[in-house]
C-alpha cells in the first residue's frame, strides 16, 4: 500500500519536494506544507476559481487536483507572479482598476487572466467574459474586473516589443 509518497516539482521557479498523502489535494499541500495561502478553497467543486494555480502554465482548480499528480510539473501560484518588487502587469491593472473588494477571489482571477493573455493578448470583452465565467466574485466586482483585464491587455502589449505577446 503506497498511501503516502514523495513528490518533486518546481514551485514558483524553485525546486520543491513534499511528503504527501495520496488523497491530499494540491491546494491543501500548498497551504499546509508551503504556507502559500493565495490559493484558497471555497466551493471545493471546481466552480469558483478561488483555488486556481497554474500547472505547466495551465490554470487548474487546486481543490480538484490530486497533489500526487503534481509530481514532475511546474507550479505557479499568485505568490510567484511578481518579480521581486515589480508586479506583474495583470496585478498592476487589478490594483489600478480597484478590481476587488475583499480580495478573496483575486488570486484566482489574476492567474486566469494571466493564462488568457498568454493565449490571446488582445481579447474582446466577450472573450474575457466567457473565459472568466468559471470564476466567482462574491463582492460583485465584475465590472472592474473586466476593466482590469482590458487594462492588463494594453499593458502587456505595450511592454512587449512589436506589440504582440511572446
Amino acid at each position: 500500500m503506497s498511501a503516502t509518497r514523495r513528490i518533486r516539482f518546481t514551485l514558483n521557479g524553485q525546486a520543491a519536494a513534499a511528503e504527501i498523502g495520496t488523497h491530499e489535494t494540491l491546494v491543501e499541500v500548498l497551504r499546509d506544507r508551503f504556507a502559500l495561502f493565495g490559493a484558497r478553497e471555497s466551493c471545493s467543486q471546481g466552480l469558483c476559481g478561488c483555488c486556481t494555480v497554474l500547472v505547466d502554465g495551465h490554470a487548474v482548480s487546486g481543490c480538484l487536483f490530486l497533489a500526487a499528480a503534481a509530481d514532475g510539473v511546474k507550479i505557479q501560484t499568485i505568490e510567484g507572479l511578481a518579480s521581486g518588487e515589480r508586479l506583474d502587469p495583470v496585478q498592476e491593472a487589478f490594483l489600478e482598476c480597484g478590481a476587488f473588494q475583499c480580495g478573496f477571489c483575486t488570486p484566482g482571477f489574476i492567474l486566469m487572466t494571466r493564462q488568457l493573455l498568454d493565449e490571446n493578448p488582445a481579447p474582446s470583452e466577450d472573450e474575457i467574459r466567457h473565459y472568466l465565467s468559471g470564476n466567482l466574485c462574491r463582492c460583485g466586482a465584475y465590472p472592474e474586473i473586466i476593466e482590469a483585464v482590458k487594462l492588463a491587455s494594453h499593458k502587456v502589449k505595450s511592454r512587449t516589443p512589436g506589440g504582440a505577446a511572446p
Binding site: G46, L47, G49, T52, V55, H58, A59, V60, S61, L64, F65, M112, Q115, H130, Y131, S133, G134, N135
Partner: peptide, 11 residues
C-alpha cells in the same frame, strides 16, 4: 468552448 470552465477542461 462551453463545456464546464477553462480549469476543468485543462484537466
Amino acid at each position: 468552448r462551453t463545456l464546464a470552465n477553462v480549469r476543468v477542461r485543462n484537466v
